[in-house]
């Protein structure tokens, strides 16, 4: 006896495949295939040529506008921004964390919605708004990184708070402790390693975004990069890209090592 399959069981995979193909036909129809400019091949060649001959004289000139100083400035933007944001995120995390199971939680839901809005608000727009406030320069970058990171760190922190073991807190309450005692002796010790690990992770992301904030004038290595691309100065582009790759790789490695030690 063979087992009869329903229509849906038999053809489910095919139907999904068809939906997938239709979606992609629609997607490809929207992108003009002729969009590539005629000189693309030539530009690629000069880029590759520039990549093979990076402008090493830019690495260090001593006037504060060279690769090393600007990479350090980028790191400083990411570090100051992330640390400030980690501190500001803590109250938001407790606002958004859902402490009881089931039902609708007005506090938690509004907190989560707020954090989603902050997270989706484009960082570039935030950077431009802060440039209007404090003028162009790395300080605007620090502000943009720190405000934008609250959206993500607040959410991750809130999830960490939701997942902690609740028994120590119950034990303290049972032994006659106050809510303040619970915070100091149960909640904070439980979440601190998690918070530090998440902050390090966010720092890795912030290094990447700090290196592009310069595109709008918020300090760091982005400004000379966009200038070099605009003037088709490929050896200079190459050395800046190399610098960014090295910086990001080193930071990722260090942060990964520290996070492994924390767990």
């Amino acid at each position: 006896m063979t087992i009869k399959k329903t229509f849906w069981q038999k053809y489910e995979a095919w139907i999904w495949a068809l939906v997938f193909v239709l979606i992609y036909i629609w997607a490809f129809s929207g992108i003009p295939a002729t969009g590539i400019q005629a000189v693309a091949g030539e530009v690629t060649k000069s880029i590759l040529n520039g990549m093979l001959h990076p402008d090493f004289s830019y690495v260090y000139t001593g006037d504060g506008e060279d690769l090393v100083s600007l990479l350090l400035q980028t790191l400083a933007i990411a570090f100051a921004g992330t640390l400030a944001s980690a501190i500001f995120s803590i109250p938001f995390a407790f606002w958004a964390a859902r402490m009881k199971k089931g039902g609708i939680h007005f506090t938690s839901s509004t907190g989560k919605l707020f954090l989603t809005i902050v997270r989706t608000f484009p960082e570039i727009v935030m950077a431009i708004m802060f440039i209007k406030a404090v003028g162009p320069g790395p300080f605007a970058g620090v502000l943009a990184v720190s405000f934008h990171s609250i959206g993500m760190l607040g959410k991750l922190f809130a999830e960490a708070v939701e997942e902690i073991d609740r028994r120590p807190a119950e034990a303290i309450i049972a032994a006659g402790g106050t809510h303040f005692d619970v915070l100091i002796h149960a909640t904070i010790p439980a979440v601190i390693p998690e918070f530090i690990s998440l902050t390090l992770y966010r720092f890795e992301i912030a290094v990447r975004s700090a290196s592009i904030l310069g595109l709008v004038g918020a300090g760091g290595i982005g400004a000379p990069l966009i200038f070099a691309i605009g003037t088709r100065w490929w050896p200079r582009v190459a050395i800046i890209l190399l610098g960014i790759i090295v910086m990001v790789t080193v930071i990722d490695f260090l942060s990964g090592y520290l996070r492994k030690k924390l767990v």
Partner: peptide, 28 residues
């Protein structure tokens, strides 16, 4: 793969706009 992952998206966009010109192709 690690090298590819270090490059931020906007930076790639800046380079591709220079290569293939302004338009959705650079974004893709």
């Amino acid at each position: 793969l690690n090298l590819v992952r270090t490059l931020p998206d906007l930076m790639l966009a800046a380079i591709f706009v220079a290569v293939v010109g302004i338009g959705p192709m650079a974004g893709v």
